[in-house]
Each structure stands twice: as structure tokens, then as C-alpha cells.
Design a protein around this nucleic acid. Sequence first.
DNA 1: AGACTGTTTATAAACACCGCA
DNA 2: GGTGCGGTGTTTATAAACAGT
Lengths: 505, 505
Amino acid sequence: MMMRLVEKGGEAEPNVFPGDGSRGVPQQRGAGSPKASPLPLNLWRENVPALDSGSCRMSKTECTEVHGPHGDGKAKLDDSLTNIQWLGRLSCQSFIPYEEENGGNAEPVKPSRSSSKDRPPYSYLQIIQLAINGTQTRRMTLQQIYTWVEEHFPYYKYIAKPGWKNSIRHNLSIHDIFVRQRENNGKAMYWTIKPSCQSVSSSSSKQAGQEKDLAISQQPGSKVRKVKPILPRMCSPYPVASPVFVTIPVLYQTPVLSAITSSSSRTRRTIDTPIAPKLPLLMENLNSCPEDKAKESTALAVMEPQKIVAKRWKDRNHQQSYTSRKANRRILELNQPDHITPGSTSSTYTDKNVMEPIYVSSAGLTISPFKTPVKTVLVQGLATSTPCRDESGVVSPGSMWASWRLELSSPKLEDSLLDCSLLKSPTHEPLQEIVQVRRKSDGGDRDLEEFLGFSPLREISSTDMLGFDQQNEGVAKIFSDFSMPNLEEAIDMTNLSWAYIYNRN
Amino acid sequence: MMMRLVEKGGEAEPNVFPGDGSRGVPQQRGAGSPKASPLPLNLWRENVPALDSGSCRMSKTECTEVHGPHGDGKAKLDDSLTNIQWLGRLSCQSFIPYEEENGGNAEPVKPSRSSSKDRPPYSYLQIIQLAINGTQTRRMTLQQIYTWVEEHFPYYKYIAKPGWKNSIRHNLSIHDIFVRQRENNGKAMYWTIKPSCQSVSSSSSKQAGQEKDLAISQQPGSKVRKVKPILPRMCSPYPVASPVFVTIPVLYQTPVLSAITSSSSRTRRTIDTPIAPKLPLLMENLNSCPEDKAKESTALAVMEPQKIVAKRWKDRNHQQSYTSRKANRRILELNQPDHITPGSTSSTYTDKNVMEPIYVSSAGLTISPFKTPVKTVLVQGLATSTPCRDESGVVSPGSMWASWRLELSSPKLEDSLLDCSLLKSPTHEPLQEIVQVRRKSDGGDRDLEEFLGFSPLREISSTDMLGFDQQNEGVAKIFSDFSMPNLEEAIDMTNLSWAYIYNRN
DNA sequence: AGACTGTTTATAAACACCGCA
DNA sequence: GGTGCGGTGTTTATAAACAGT
Ligand SMILES: [Mg+2]
Ligand SMILES: [Mg+2]
């Protein structure tokens, strides 16, 4: 009797991690009914496959629709004795008490938290962008995305429930920055990233669902599974960065759209959101990173969980709650200057031309797909080509996340060029960008640096184009559809440079 | 000891249905831990509050953050003995076997399936549109939306878990057709519907999650809770309709964007999606519905579940699977004509000027917020002012859904006027619309009619504006932001009429 | 300080469509 | 040619985290 596993839409089961010692050991299924407990017992599979094996009685014939790791969609109906895909079946899941995870007695099979089998701190949105941007052609089939993810994040290959592929497809579908394209002559469908959205969305990373088990684990007396280490959401989109050294430009902000948006003074979001002026890319002020370095690895910024940062801040400030508005504002003030009109002489943000590494997206554009205003954030710059301190053994909160630096092959720069001059507003005014640069080690920042353990990096982020309030993605849609130059028109960007941000008024 | 219920983000508990007999009867909590079972036991609360009471031992002090039905946000910390909000606590949920629900012994407290306490067959997207469009000003605060929903759909007031408010907010946020506006002078935030999207999305209704329990219930030997009666997704957006009598226009379809989209012949979606030409609203060819009727009640189309339709079709065609492509295509061909170029003489869809009721959105525009192409669908027209047959007692599949006709106060027509002339493409070509009209009782339709039990209604649906492939919403965003006339500029639409769809070529 | 409001992500699921065997 | 099935893509529901008001 062959029964089909409808679970997870017939998605493939995760693979067995090589050298895990768990190969062939069936996973436990808890106390419920063996196959179809009406209760979704767990949201995450255990970090350690086959951690507890013993009471799992899943019959092999129950899983006929599993296939291999880099499934080409052809491995079907493998019910031979060598089929061990079902080993990691999600319902065969152990319930490790929360304390046990943090407890001293390290179980032998349990990998360290900084192991690469941990869940990466990137959202699906980011992961897909990383995948697609990691290719030369900047396009990928769905299967290629699957493969890339599995190869770069073993978590999805070995640990995650098969539903992660559903999530990949879901994210491809709902995010408009991902556009389906059909191969010129062939039949294959490729997923691409809209040129106008060429940046990793960066709210690194998921703030949702990541700790849905935490509340449960905090219930007294309840034995709960582990919380997957996913970083909480950070505020700022952070582009897929290649380090570029520029002279820090003046921080200007132009009230370009005050007439268009005509928002009342209460709509803080519209008003405070920096408007993106047209950013001229000139050569004078840029020390481009050596091309080989840029090509060798495009590092992605790694951030610490907000809670860790907040806790440190809290500890340092004597029980000051990290939810304190004042503290938050203090941090944000460092990151996001007030609205500065061109005429105003805000001494805090006057121009200081210092050579500093700045991370920009390869396109030099960061169009946020989100409605929340782009904020500069406390980010540890990791994209420098200098080798980072190796955290051998000790798993500090900082190093835990530092291990998630991605080694990505740098995409061809010319592939990502955006001809910004074609971006026009309906009133035929050229779009503008504002680049925010957070200054370093200035006054109160020192506190922050010390408490953070690193120097907050300057950051460039261009925000909502033309300030369409919360609908900037619509702008991107339109203009990308109409005004975007062909990707085939390769333009050498390696010699482009950032100029001073200018105020066109 | 006061503990805060984090469940559902502190959302209010549902109220007790008046005359339910369940007032004051605590809900059951199953066998798990009383308050915080780590397992999300149920996705839906039982249809019948306090259906099984006995083992619930939830203490009153556990629920301090519940507030009243039409919560004004002020009813907090009501832990008096009169507080019975916790009666319906979601975890106090009974597990009624699937058969028991359909079984003969009707439990006294269980309402009939066609009761208004059943879950309405509308998605949140639709519900919110219904709510907002039901007001004169076409805007609502969040609380007003809550209240409207509770008043119009008792399910949400008495049955649904408090998470439904979260879903409302979620839907307001993710759907770009909902735009936040601040009151001119005041502080209140209002939710509005973008004028360019003035239609009820009408994929009536949810196809997701609606039957997530069905698969479980089909597991042999597993006792499962009931399946909430939510209609599966229909294909076609169907506008919030006021019946308007027009002469059926010619079915034209203009390949306006063939140059712009430049999609290969494989991208079926792009090619087959009708392009929306500019729709001139003239007076000659329209017999507007009497205003009083239109004002009295704007009915929404009620559709039958797709599965029911499909089953009937299947039964009628002797075991022909409803998944048969041929059958499906047969149906779809009736609904969606092939791409008709202006020059082509498609005799199937030539003009027949017959007076027929057509349901159009008050704005005369139906811009789909979806990527899937708009398809006309088998829809039972219920928006006529003639009283519909009352289904007293008997719950037929058809009448079950017919009971969900909404009695909505007709919104002011002048509020929804769209000045289409201002919709311009970036190439300054006026946008065009195509109106699809399905013809009635023509040839093969007779089969369909008979098997359906009603005459499929003609339907007007303009589709993707300018054919931005799957990104029409972006277009709407832009143009609504830039070119939409003020809503304050009231223009009398009651005398407007439909003209023949014309091909500007 | 806390409640309410709004945004984003994760996850599961239903289902349509399509290509292929 | 038909047909069934699996892969792909879209949409909805729900829960949750968390930021903003
Ligand atoms: Mg997409
Ligand atoms: Mg919205």
C-alpha cells in the first residue's frame, strides 16, 4: 500500500547531514498518532537530526514522494531500502527543554550554535536576492535557487522542514522585486530581480515567527523545543555591499516632494523619510576597491540581534529598558538626522570629508521594498577585505552572527548598472536621491561604540524615490517597466565613483 | 496575580452570542495544559461557543486584557466577575469529529450551517472593501472597520478567535489598495481604498487555509474539528455591484501593449490577459438603475464553492474528472475569449445589443489587484432588487451561500468617480480599458445554465491596466498618486452610461 | 508605561496552471 | 490525443515580532 505524504505539499524531506551519525536512524514522532496528528506539533525541526531516536515507527511505505538533495524533480517514487529521506520527518521531533539547550551538559551530537547548520540570519527575501545576485546572469530558475540555498545554507538542506521551498516560492511570488522571465527561445522560466530594486533588502532579518516558540518556552513547566537563532529585524535595508572608499559627503536632505506629497505635518513618515535625489556617479571622489577583491567576495553586512544590542545598552545604562523611547531615540538620532533643509546650518551634520569605507549596492541604488522608512542602523561593517578576527571556539553573541558572513561570488558589476537619468517623475523632474551617511566616533557615538564593541559604520542608503509615501515600490515598478535600460547594455561601473551629495536647490 | 495573555497579541476575545445559552459557561480546553499548551491545537474556534463545557479550568485572573465587543480601545483591565470575555478562549476548544458534524443527531445548541454565525465566504480583502465602500466618505478608522465587521458578520464577533483583528490589520497593510490617510486637521487615521482599485477583489473567496482541516479529517481514524465553511477561490474579481442595465457592448480587445511588454509567445499570461483600454462613460447606452434601488442595497455577488460547481459538472458528465483540462478549458472558453485583435472578425463575440443587467463597480472600474488574469466566472447574479427565494430550513449548497448576500448601504456614487482621462502611460498614451462581457444563453452555455441551476450573469471586468504583465498594481499606485482627481470634487455619476467599447486603432 | 496601530516575516495550505511522461 | 502527476506560481489565512503612534 502506497500512501502519499501530503505534508508540506509533497516537498522533499531534508537530507542527512554527512558525518552526523544519524544516517539511517529514524526520527522520533512523539506520542501522537504516527502519521497524521491533527496538531501541528512543531514549527521547526530540531537542530540536531536524530537527536532522539527510539519511538519512531514510521513505515517506509508512508513516504514515497521524497527525493534527493539537489532534486532535479526527477527523483520520484524512491521507496527502496536506501531511501533515508524520511529520517528527518518533521513529526519525529524531539522536545528539548529550553533550559537543556543552554545548560552546561553539552550533548555530544549537538553542534554548536555557531555551526553552519544553524538557521541563517537572512530572510527569504534576502536569501533569494543573494542567490540571484550571486550569478553572472542575475537570473535563476526555481531549482537553481533551491540548490543555491541548500549549498550555501546547510540548514535548509539538512535541518529545515521541507516547507522552506514553499516559502521560497511564496516569497518569489509576493515580492514584486522578483520577476519571472522566460528564456528567449526556450521554455525555462527564470527569476530575476527588477533592476530598480537591486539591493538586498536588509532588514536583516526576519522578525516574525522567529521566536514564536519563545513565548511557549517561557511558559512555566512546559517543555519546549529550541528557538531557532534567527536575527530579529533591523531597521535599515542594507545593500549587497562591495566596499567602496569614498570621501564622506555632506549630509543633505532636500524637501523635493513637499509640494507633491502635500502631506500634513502629522504624517511623520512622509516628512521624515529622506527623499532620494539624483545621485551623480563621478569618478573623482571614489577609491574603488580593487576589482579582484570586489570580485572575490562580496560580503554582506552581519548584524547582531537587536535584542543583544539592546541588552548591552540596557545593562550599560543601569536597568534602562531597551524599550525606552528615550534610549531608542538616542540611538536613532545617531543614525537618522532630523530633517535638514538646505539652508539650515545644522552643525551636527556638516560635511567632514574623511576617507571612509562605505558600502553601497553594486548599482549604487538601494530602493527599499518596504513601507517603513529606511533608517541607518547599528551595523558592524564586515565587508572589508581585511580578514576578520576569527572566533575560534568561543561563541560570543557577536561572533555567533559574524560566522554568517557570506562568501559570495561578486556579481558582474556591469550587470547591475542603473541608468538613473531615465528615472523621471511624472512631472518630468529627475528623480533625486539622498544619501545618508552616519558619522563615526563623534561625541556620543563613543559610548555607543564601546557598548557595541565595534565602530558603527557609515552607511549609505537612498530611500523612497520621490517620496511616494508608502508606495515607493509602485514607482519602481513603473519606471523599471518603462525606463530601465537593457541589462544587456553593459556599462563599466568599476570606475564610477560617488560624488558629493548635492542639493539641487 | 495578574498575568497577561500574550495570545493573539492581546486581542479581545469574542463575545457571547446573545441567546446562546452559553453565557458564563467556560469553554473547554481539551486535554492539554490549561493556559499555554505549546501546541497550537486549533486553527479555528468551534462554531458553537460553549458546545462542550466541563473541563475548562481557566481562571479569571488569567485574562485581564480583554475588552468589549465594539471595543473603543478603552475597556481595559476588566477583571470583574462580569467579565466573560474569556468564555470563548480559543484553547477551550472541542474536538468534534467530522462525522459528528454531519451526523443526524443535531445538537440543540448548534446553529445551522447557513446561520449568520457561520464564517462569511469573503476574504479579509473583500470584507475590508465592503466595509469601507459601505460608508459615505469611503474611509474608515481601524476601529470602525472592526465594528463594521462585527456588526455585519457575527462570526467575527462571537466565534472567531481574536486573531482576526490581527488579520484585518495585516490585510490593510499588505494590500496596497488600502491607503492610510490622516484626517485633514485632526489626528485620526483613516483607511481608504485607492480610487484606481475601486472594486471588491472578488476572487470570492479564500482558497487558502479554508480547508486545512479537511486533509486531516480525511485521515482515517483521526478525530478532527470541523471545517469552517469558507468558499474556495473563484477566478474572477467581481466588483461591488450596483445593478446597472446597459446594452451589451461589443467585446473588443486591444493589443495596446504588445510593443511594450514584448513578451515571448510563451508567456501566456501576458499575452492572454486582456488589456484595459480607456473606457468612455457616456450616457446614451445606459439605463441606470433607479437611484433609490441602488442606494437601498448594493448586493454582492454570491458564488458557489468551486468544488460544488465542479462536482455537479462532474456528475453531469459521467465521471468526467473536474480536473480534466478539457472540461476546464470548455468552461473557461466560455468565460474568457481568446485574444481578439481589432481587425479580426471573431463571430463568437460580435456585438449583440441586448438589454441585460450588468454589474459594475460604482466607479465602473475593476482593476484586479492580483497577478492571475481576470477571468469571468460562473456567478449567480444576486444583485437584482428582486427578492430572492428564501431558503427556509433546507440547506442546499446553493442556498447556503446565498444567505451570505450582503445588505450594504450603497455608497455615494459621486465619491467613486475616476477621471480616467488623467490616467496616462509614461508614453503619454491614454490608458485603455477592455471590458469583457460574457454572453448569455448562447450555444453551449445552455448546458452550463442547466447544470448550474442559474443563468450565468454577464460580467464586466476590466483587467490589467496597460498590461504591465503582473505588476498592474504598480501602475495603479503611480497613477493614483499623481493623476487622481480629488475625491472632494464630486461629479454626478448617476447619469453616466456605458458606451460601446471602442478600439482606438 | 502601556495600549493601539501598522509593517514585515514565517509558515501552512488551497488551488490553478503547465509541462512531461 | 488524452491523461495523470509533479513542479511551479498565486493567493489567503494565521501567528508572531516589533516598530511607530
Ligand atoms: Mg514576484
Ligand atoms: Mg496598505
